[in-house]
């Protein structure tokens, strides 16, 4: 029982990270129809920015995450302008291929600049808290609360602010939105900025538990795609539910079945779902 509860907390922490990263990906897909295969690389860069802010400049952890989010937002905008904007009318295969190019660049760029060694990110939250008899690492709690905070902020932004509403409007109805005179360019840049910032936050939160290295985004990249396909490409609740579902499945299958299986489970599930419902679990038109 204790193992179960312990693992449940771990799964929730992992799920919040997955959800955050998946939210960014699904926003870009929902609004811009771009399956951004470079998302995992943005995530990785986000972790490095936080890492260097912490270690080289001694900036406090939370502030460092904020800086990382801002830097990645900027990188997101640059990627949108330079890469995806020129391709907005190209076939979908071109988006995917361009994203692969960005992925190559960022990942091997990180390797060249910072080497491929694994780095440990120091976090001030190293203690262990005892909650109802469970020993939980502080960092895990930070991950969970910070993620919830960010998700609530994102929700408020999308629902309550004008720029946020324009994003939602386009997500729901592209032609309608352009008729109302929404500036598609601005929305596009904004979406990429938010998406990359979310990835950066997710990576920075989890990095003290895992490690920082150039290929840290690779597995995650595939996983977040599994999540958003299951949740329905472009669906925000779907990304959150999918993120937690995958984390639960992974953590518990690794506890009770096997490690190897837990890594594959997300993909096996993805393949089964798509084989049965070719446009995902929660999509409208199947």
């Amino acid at each position: 029982m204790e193992l179960f509860l312990q693992q449940l907390v771990n799964a929730i922490a992992l799920g919040s990270v997955y959800s955050l990263a998946a939210l960014g990906l699904t926003l870009v897909f929902g609004v811009l129809r771009i399956p951004n295969l470079a998302h995992g690389a943005l995530y990785m860069i986000g972790a490095y920015v936080t890492y260097f802010a912490l270690t080289s400049y001694g900036i406090p952890y939370i502030v460092a995450i904020g800086i990382s989010a801002a830097v990645l937002a900027l990188i997101g905008v640059i990627v949108e302008r330079l890469v995806f904007h020129p391709l907005r009318n190209a076939p979908h295969t071109h988006h995917l291929i361009a994203a692969v190019g960005v992925l190559f660049f960022l990942q091997s760029g990180a390797q060249v600049l910072w080497g491929s060694e694994f780095r440990e990110m120091p976090s001030p939250f190293t203690g262990i808290v005892n909650v109802f008899g469970l020993n939980i690492g502080q960092q895990r709690l930070v991950v969970i609360f910070a993620s919830i905070l960010v998700m609530v902020a994102l929700y408020l932004f999308l629902k309550k602010t004008v720029p946020g509403q324009t994003i939602e409007a386009i997500e729901q109805d592209r032609t309608g939105a352009s008729l109302v005179g929404i500036d598609a360019n601005r929305v596009s840049m904004m979406t990429f900025a938010i998406s990359a910032a979310l990835a950066a936050i997710a990576a920075s939160l989890v990095a003290p538990i895992n490690l920082v290295f150039p290929t840290m985004g690779e597995a995650l990249n595939l996983k977040v795609f599994a999540i958003i396909i299951l949740g329905g490409l472009g669906s925000i609740p779907g990304a959150i539910v999918g993120g937690f579902a995958l984390a639960l499945a992974e953590v518990f299958s690794s506890t009770y079945i096997s490690n190897a299986f837990s890594e594959a489970i997300g993909f096996l599930f993805l393949l089964v779902v798509l084989a049965v419902r070719p446009t995902g679990l929660f999509s409208k038109g199947a």
Binding site: A98, V100, G101, F104, F105, G109
Partner: peptide, 8 residues
């Protein structure tokens, strides 16, 4: 690093 931008 070189091939990525070339792809794009």
């Amino acid at each position: 690093v070189i091939l990525g931008p070339i792809v794009v």
